[in-house]
Structures are given as structure tokens and as C-alpha cells.
């Protein structure tokens, strides 16, 4: 799925992309926007915690950890396929 979109929670380690869409009805969405989750911001999926959740990502220049439940609100346009 070259240049396709996928959910942030479904990304694999090392994959990069940009935020394409955010689910504004998600209860955490506004908080995430305050932290810098905005359409067009580059995202790199870093790793998954040992027990499968949460995940670690690089958002712009900051490294964040979030649960899959929150990540589900974010859709990514992928730049490269791993």
C-alpha cells in the first residue's frame, strides 16, 4: 500500500508518515491536538511496549508514548513501506 493511509495503531516499527486525518469525535482528540497532533505533522513509529501496548512514536521532534486506544483516532499517510 504505497502512499496509502493507515491507522497509527496499525503502523510497524520504523514506518514513517504524516498525519492525514484525526477523529474529532474521539474523546482524547482535543488533548492530542494541544500536544501537537495536527494534520501534516510527520510521525515515525518507534516501537511497541513488551506487552503489546502502549506504543512509542516520534511526533515532529518529540517522542511520545500513547495507548492504542488513543492512537486509533489518528490516520497516517505513509511515505515508505517497510
Amino acid at each position: 500500500m504505497k502512499n496509502g493511509t493507515l491507522n497509527l495503531a496499525a503502523m510497524k516499527s520504523g514506518q514513517r508518515g504524516k498525519i492525514a486525518e484525526m477523529d474529532l469525535n474521539h474523546p482524547s482528540c482535543q488533548r492530542m491536538m494541544a500536544m501537537g497532533f495536527l494534520i501534516g505533522v510527520p510521525v515515525e513509529f518507534l516501537r511497541v511496549a513488551p506487552m503489546g501496548d502502549p506504543i512509542a512514536i516520534r511526533l515532529g521532534s518529540q517522542v511520545l508514548s500513547l495507548r492504542r486506544a488513543e492512537a486509533a483516532a489518528i490516520t497516517i499517510v505513509c511515505q515508505e513501506v517497510v
Binding site: P54, L64, L66
Partner: peptide, 9 residues
């Protein structure tokens, strides 16, 4: 509860 959004400084 607040969403779990943790900065890893």
C-alpha cells in the same frame, strides 16, 4: 480520567 499521552523526554 486523562488519556495516556506520555512524553518521553
Amino acid at each position: 480520567s486523562q488519556p495516556f499521552l506520555l512524553e518521553m523526554p
